[in-house]
Simulated scan of single mutants.
Amino acid sequence: MGELFRYVTNGLVATGVHYSVLAFNLHVLGFSSAGLANLVAAMFGIAASFVGNRYFVFANGGEAPWHGQAARFVLLYGAIALLHGAVMWTWADWLQQDYRIGFLIATVMQFVLSYIGNKRLVFKK
């Protein structure tokens, strides 16, 4: 099974974790704010993504100290989130284009940058 396939699989699992925790927060715990429920759920999704990348996607990732990888992972995903937001603002707010197309563009960019960043910066051999 190739690394890119494992990366996509891990992303789908992390997204499933994110969505499941979001639904749990809203329907079981009764969060009154979907935004807050999503913020909490995103932390679970990001944690699932980190663990999956460390032990499943990038096989040698488990050999390095986890705390250094976690710090680089958080910095990478924080930078990508800011860039994602900037693309959305530029596309939808400034250029007045369809936000759905902007979201697709930003998400593809996020996918590519996170794969390259994880491979070369966070979980490098």
Rank of each mutant, 00 (worst) to 15 (best):
G2R: 09
Y7F: 15
Y7T: 11
V8A: 14
T9N: 15
G11W: 10
G11L: 06
G11N: 08
A14H: 04
G16K: 07
V17F: 10
V17W: 07
V17M: 05
H18P: 09
H18L: 13
H18I: 08
Y19A: 15
S20R: 10
S20K: 08
S20Q: 13
S20T: 14
A23M: 13
F24C: 14
F24G: 09
F24P: 09
N25D: 12
L26N: 12
L26A: 15
H27I: 10
G35L: 01
L36W: 15
L36C: 06
N38Y: 10
L39T: 15
A41E: 04
M43N: 08
M43R: 05
G45P: 05
S49Q: 09
S49V: 10
F50W: 04
V51L: 12
V51N: 03
Y55C: 07
A59R: 13
G62F: 08
P65R: 13
P65T: 06
H67D: 12
H67L: 12
H67G: 07
H67V: 09
Q69F: 06
A71N: 03
F73E: 06
Y77N: 15
Y77T: 06
A79D: 01
I80M: 03
L82Y: 08
G85L: 01
A86V: 02
A86I: 04
M88S: 00
M88K: 00
A92M: 03
L95M: 08
Q96G: 03
Q96P: 00
Q97E: 06
R100V: 08
I101Q: 07
I101W: 11
I101A: 12
I101G: 03
G102K: 02
G102Q: 02
F103G: 05
F103V: 06
T107P: 02
V108Y: 03
V108N: 05
M109A: 04
M109F: 06
V112E: 00
V112A: 07
V112D: 00
N118D: 04
K119Q: 07
R120V: 09
F123Q: 07
